[in-house]
Design a protein around this nucleic acid. Sequence first.
DNA 1: TGGATTATATATCCACTGGATACATTGAGT
DNA 2: ACTCAATGTATCCAGTGGATATATAATCCA
Lengths: 188, 188
Amino acid sequence: MTRRAAYHHGDLATAALDAALDLVAEDPSASFSLRTLAERLGVAHRALYNHFADREALLAALAARGFARLADTLATVPDPAGFLAAYVRFALDQPGLYAVMTGRQYDQINATPPLRAAVDRVIAVALDTLATRGADDDTRRREVMRVWMLAHGAIGLQRAGMLRMRSAEEFAIEVLHIARLAPPEETK
Amino acid sequence: MTRRAAYHHGDLATAALDAALDLVAEDPSASFSLRTLAERLGVAHRALYNHFADREALLAALAARGFARLADTLATVPDPAGFLAAYVRFALDQPGLYAVMTGRQYDQINATPPLRAAVDRVIAVALDTLATRGADDDTRRREVMRVWMLAHGAIGLQRAGMLRMRSAEEFAIEVLHIARLAPPEETK
DNA sequence: TGGATTATATATCCACTGGATACATTGAGT
DNA sequence: ACTCAATGTATCCAGTGGATATATAATCCA
């Protein structure tokens, strides 16, 4: 790719998402403009529209990538406490990305197949790690939702400064305890 | 004091918040512009800057009003289940306002005394209604946070389409159950 | 009272944004 | 070798938050 300055970028779509990830990390409000994104890529801002219908579509693609990463991370953790700690760490370490991920609307999620798939993969991993084996599907789903509600809510309150979470690990234990999924020897 | 209704063009500050409330109700993403707000008030957009430092300050004032309303609503409900149901209903009935309220950052909340006060009032009401009487302050605060985390998280997941909440009332029972604040004979 | 002061509203400008249209360049597929 | 669809550029547009300077109305004080 060190050929002479190519008119065609090569893979602008993924390069754009890489750069967008950086921008969101720099400014968690995700208020970056398509123009600064394009400038960082050394490209006319209008080039982005060849790969994304509009700004929202780009953010949806970014969210999909975020969920995919999150699923990858969570899949490496076998136990519920580690899972939860990893989830919370992911959200607090990359607040902008997490906001983009959780800020999409239901309609947009379903209208963007890769996003839908990435979300489903996170749910699948969560079911696998958190839910009681052998229980019926509805129960398992409820267990996951319980934990997810707590984690997602805590992250929001933490970000708003309403909550003082000590550490992700300690928080994880407490959440599992509240959700009654904590191992019995841990209660003392 | 109440003589304030016949200025040059009226009490623009509160009229602006009234109109902003309408606009946010019409478009929950709260992406309304100061210009359309001003136009609806029959005023130059620049007039708003005499009452609010910038757009963010206006949103902060709107958030303060939202928390004040929420506190009023919650204060009328004596029991935890009713409290929670009312909270969830408020958030889901006025998603745009709720987003504005919970979207502010910690720094901004503390830098805006009326907002800080309104939030504190909601916390006070919550402590009064939800927390165990006689328990020490830390425990009481933890109890409230547990419920708040669940409620706030559930609202977020519901809005994102990840959760299918049946009704506010049923949800309230379940949350209290999870948070172990439910009356002992409670069953699903 | 009436003139000055102060709060409020307007007029106009700015850099910047997302997006549209029209055109230029390129490389893949026949 | 030559299309031609995919990709990138140039330019334009209406709309945005915000700044500066100016006008007008309300209040205070001689």
